[in-house]
């Protein structure tokens, strides 16, 4: 409901924005996140400034525990930063009210969860159609739209099956369809290949490149799977809650 019609201009502090003409999708400034661990407070993110662009597939990579998941959770509006601000397509999302933020996510963001979190008692088409149904579209219409996308993902013939009748790879495709069905402008995906062997991981990534990347859509993939780094348009390296590299290639020594 609060999605702005066009991205607002972002601040000019982004290091690499001059190198590309792509629009800035996310502009994160001074992101700090603390977690309470018993008595003590742990700082997981130490003041992160970064931009994510539309039309690109951005990888967030780093060791396990470096804060990747925390960072993208903050960037897609499901985790409040302790300090800092996040503008997504020009909207300062943590200045929105709770309800506005939820609706902003529904309009603008597609999620691919590692454990696909499909609803077991509705079929693949209905699962893929959830964002449309949540937006108020009639069930049948939403399912038809979702079916078209499932076709594109080569599992159109599985549309009427329940999740537990599908293989893991097929379930992941349903989850991908659910993330894209409402044509969000930002897609986030946490460790899509973690549970897959090398060749299936590769296939999923190729598929994501094919269906998720679009001119006016930003796509963020969190991974620590170095087998797929070559698929990235841009790579952010996180080390202990600090961005140590932001470029089109992996830095040397990784």
């Amino acid at each position: 409901m609060t999605a702005p019609a066009s991205p607002a201009p972002t601040e000019t502090t982004a290091k690499t924005s001059a190198e590309t003409s792509a629009e800035t999708a996310i502009c994160a400034r001074g992101i700090v996140r603390d977690f309470q661990a018993g008595q003590s407070t742990i700082r997981v993110l130490h003041g992160i400034d970064t931009d994510i662009r539309s039309g690109e597939m951005t990888f967030v990579v780093g060791e396990s525990g470096s804060g990747k998941t925390t960072l993208i959770s903050i960037m897609c509006g499901i985790l409040w930063p302790t300090e800092g601000e996040v503008k997504v397509f020009g909207t300062d999302i943590y200045k929105l009210s709770d309800t506005e933020l939820v609706n902003f996510r529904l309009e603008n963001i597609g999620f691919i969860f590692q454990q696909y979190n499909l609803i077991p008692s509705i079929d693949a088409a209905a699962n893929a159609a959830v964002p449309l149904i949540a937006k108020g579209m009639a069930i049948e219409e939403a399912r038809e739209k979702a079916k078209k996308l499932l076709d594109k993902l080569n599992i159109g013939d599985q549309a009427e099956k329940l999740p537990n009748q599908l293989s893991g790879g097929q379930q992941q495709r349903v989850a991908i369809a659910r993330a894209l069905v409402h044509e969000p402008r930002l897609v986030v995906c946490d460790e899509p290949t973690a549970a897959l062997d090398a060749s299936s991981g590769r296939r999923v990534m190729d598929l994501l490149r094919e269906v998720a990347v679009a001119k006016d859509r930003a796509c963020i993939i969190v991974t620590h799977d170095n087998r797929i780094f070559d698929l990235a348009d841009r790579i952010l390296v996180l080390e202990d809650g600090v961005v140590t590299h932001d470029g089109t290639e992996m830095p040397d020594g990784h």
Partner: peptide
Amino acid sequence: DNIRQFGALKAIGLTNMK
């Protein structure tokens, strides 16, 4: 049993009211 599904729905964009 369904808490993860509810969590996913909340992330995708269902308000607490819904």
